[in-house]
Design a protein around this nucleic acid. Structure first.
Lengths: 153, 153
DNA sequence: TTGTTTCCCATGAAATCCCATGTTATCCCA
DNA sequence: TGGGATAACATGGGATTTCATGGGAAACAA
C-alpha cells in the first residue's frame, strides 16, 4: 500500500528519487519501475505499479467498446502513461512534458494514496493538503468503516 | 482489541516503546508494526494495525473514484499515514512531523480504543480525558449497543 | 561533433540493527 | 502463601546499513 508523503529533490538531469518504501511495494514485480501519467483532473501526476495498471486494464475491458467513458479512460490513462524504470539508485527520470504538467522544477512531493500515488509540486500540494484535512474534519461523520473481517479470514 | 492507557518515554533518537499488549495484537500479521497518522481532528496521532488500514482502504475504494470526499479522505489518511515497524525491542521511531503535530517530546500516552488507538502528549491527554468523561456522562442516553450476535457468528 | 541519456561510483546524513542493563512482572516450588 | 528464580519489558548507546543525492564516464542520437 502506498502511504505517507515524501518530498525529494530533482537534480539537473531531471532525476528524482522514488521513496524507498514506494520502491519496496513494486519490487519483485515483472517491471522494476512505476507507471506515471499526467492527471486529467489537475496539475499533478498520478502513478502506480504494475498491479494498478492491470486493474485499470481489467476495468476498461469490462466496459462496452464504444462507451464514451471507456474511450476517455483509455486516452486519459493508457494514452498518456509511461513506464519509468528505476536506475541503480532507485531514481526515475521525469519526461519534460510531465514536469511541465505538474510544474516540477527542483522538488517533487510523492503522496501515497493506498493503491496508487500522486506526484505534486510541493508548494501546490501544501495548499491542497490543508483543504483535504479541513474537508475530512467536516465530513468525518460520513466515514463508515466496514466491519472487521472474521477471525482467521 | 486495543485497550487501556499507557505512558512511555521517548529517547533522544525519537524512539518510543509500544506497549507490549498493543504489540501482541498486531503480531502474526503480515506487517510487524503499526500504522500511524496525525489526526485531522486534533493535536494527537491515530493508529492501528494492518486490518484497520485494510478497512479504510475498503471504505475508500467503495466510493466513486473522483468523488471529492474520497479524494480528501485519501489524502488526509493515506497521504499522512506511515508504517512504523518495530525494532527488535518493540519500539517505533516517531517521525519528526508526527512528534510536532502531537506536541510530543519526552513522553507519549497510548490510548486504546478498540479497533484503533491514539497517541497523545500526556499532559494534553489528562486535560482532554476530564472533558471526555464529562461528555460521556452527559450523553449516556445516546449510547446504544447493537443486539448481541448469536454465538459462533 | 554536440547534446542527451544511461550506467557506475562516491559521499554525508539518516534510519536501522545489535547488544547491554535496570526494573518490573510472572512463574514455580517449597 | 511466601520468596527466590526466571522471563518480559522499557530504555540506553554504539556500530552498521540504507538512502538520497551529486558528479563523471560511457553509450547513443542527431
Amino acid at each position: 500500500m502506498f502511504l505517507s508523503t515524501t518530498t525529494n529533490g530533482i537534480d539537473a538531469k531531471g532525476r528524482l528519487s522514488v521513496p524507498a518504501d514506494f520502491r519496496a511495494i513494486v519490487r519483485n514485480g515483472p517491471f522494476d519501475g512505476i507507471y506515471v501519467w499526467p492527471s486529467f483532473d489537475g496539475d499533478y501526476l498520478e502513478g502506480g505499479g504494475q498491479s494498478l495498471m492491470d486493474r485499470y486494464l481489467q476495468m476498461i475491458e469490462s466496459m462496452d467498446p464504444y462507451d464514451d467513458a471507456r474511450v476517455a479512460l483509455e486516452r486519459a490513462i493508457f494514452g498518456s502513461a509511461r513506464p519509468l524504470s528505476f536506475d541503480a539508485n532507485g531514481r526515475i527520470t521525469l519526461p519534460k512534458p510531465f514536469a511541465e504538467h505538474a510544474g516540477l522544477s527542483d522538488k517533487a512531493t510523492f503522496v501515497g494514496l493506498g493503491a496508487r500515488f500522486e506526484i505534486w509540486n510541493p508548494d501546490v500540494y501544501a495548499a491542497h493538503e490543508v483543504e483535504a484535512r479541513k474537508f475530512a474534519r467536516e465530513n468525518k461523520r460520513a466515514m463508515k468503516l466496514p466491519p472487521p473481517r472474521p477471525v482467521g479470514a
